[in-house]
Amino acid sequence: MTMIELRNVHKRFDELEVLKGINLTVEKGEVVIIIGASGSGKSTMLRVINNLEPIQAGEVWVAGIPVHDPKQAGEVHRIAGMVFQQFNLFPHLTALQNVTLALRKVKKLDQKEADRLGGKALEHVGLADKASAYPAEMSGGQQQRVAIARALAMEPEIMLFDEATSALDPELVGEVTGVMRQLAAEGMTMLVVTHEMGFARDVGDRVVFVDEGVIAEEGPPEVLFTAPSNPRTQQFLHRVLDR
């Protein structure tokens, strides 16, 4: 079953064309990794899927919802959960309140039921003991795990990760990718923009290399990482793996 489909998607910021005809299909349960240089358009791709950026041409379908149609685009938020590079936790709310806000206001659950589900979501990411902590009192890794719990609590069918570990100190990356690995193992459909090539290789069912607004190459990680056919992919991998 197809969960995400992009058809010839074009996205322009004023004069700058960021996506120049993207075609991509993601099946249910698939983990697709998106790699590429900064400015290549990979984050924009996720943001387009999640209705955070309007597109100029093409079609974006998420679980049957036409996200390119502004009238129905908002529906995508019931289907997709998103995790951001900068966590974007609500600083005035505790970890549990962060997780339960949408449960109460969007799903209209009462406080008790929301707290129960919120607690479960925090447990899922190993932070049940931080329920009453504010974001400022947590490490970056903990904050990002709360952000994942916040998205998971809404029971999304798809999780979008936009460089979820890029803002973390290196020693904190593992706890977040750990949760992401667990999610993948549980069968979650995931679209992951990342620079963590080890994670990409281990967890990805498919790797997509985005270059200057187009998908330059895609394939299973064992092929794309070891024998890329496009010279641009070779260059990029050479640069990032050499570090």
Partner: peptide, 27 residues
């Protein structure tokens, strides 16, 4: 208030009114 706050709230499905009321104005 950083733009990401609004984006995170929108991603959770909060309405425009709810975003202002529960996320932006308290900050």
């Amino acid at each position: 208030v950083p733009r990401g706050q609004r984006e995170a709230a929108r991603s959770l499905g909060l309405s425009r009114y709810q975003i202002e009321r529960y996320v932006i104005l308290p900050q």
